[in-house]
Design a protein around this nucleic acid. Sequence first.
DNA 1: CAATTGTGTCAATTATATATGACACCAAGT
DNA 2: ACTTGGTGTCATATATAATTGACACAATTG
Lengths: 72, 72
Amino acid sequence: MYALNKVKEYRKHRDLTQIELARRVGVARQTINLIENGKYNPSLSLCISLAKELLTDLNALFWEEEDEEQNT
Amino acid sequence: MYALNKVKEYRKHRDLTQIELARRVGVARQTINLIENGKYNPSLSLCISLAKELLTDLNALFWEEEDEEQNT
DNA sequence: CAATTGTGTCAATTATATATGACACCAAGT
DNA sequence: ACTTGGTGTCATATATAATTGACACAATTG
């Protein structure tokens, strides 16, 4: 199991099926399914495509805050 | 060539060598090198490890804004 | 009741991320 | 002039992301 993500949430919010989202980002339906269910570890370029297609960004989909840490 | 990123920039800012960063995130030095030079497409979990080790987040390292798009 | 649509999952294959070992180059230091 | 550390890169091997085709199940719709 890999890190949880909000792909399903954002996809539903956009009213897309797994099939349609898969088509739009150019991967197989199974790939979307596995990602949504945290069964694996997508590539960065796929994450970026998903974020763009879902009109959001990487952090919103895949980042979970731990503690706040600030750098200069 | 894949999307540009700011790994090298953040790594230098943290005063780490490729070797040390590789060690800390548990990959080979070559992997860091290839990522920094945009020669490939890391996995999400590696991106997350890098972001944490560099005390930043996914967007800062790997996201480039296109146009601003707002969702409800 | 059939037929369809969306989803979860399996097995087998292909593409590619990542590892390992090696070599060259360029600084900086001794 | 030699060593050492940091980097870029190559070639080969392995792990795993991603594909394809298939099947089951639940919920809807005719």
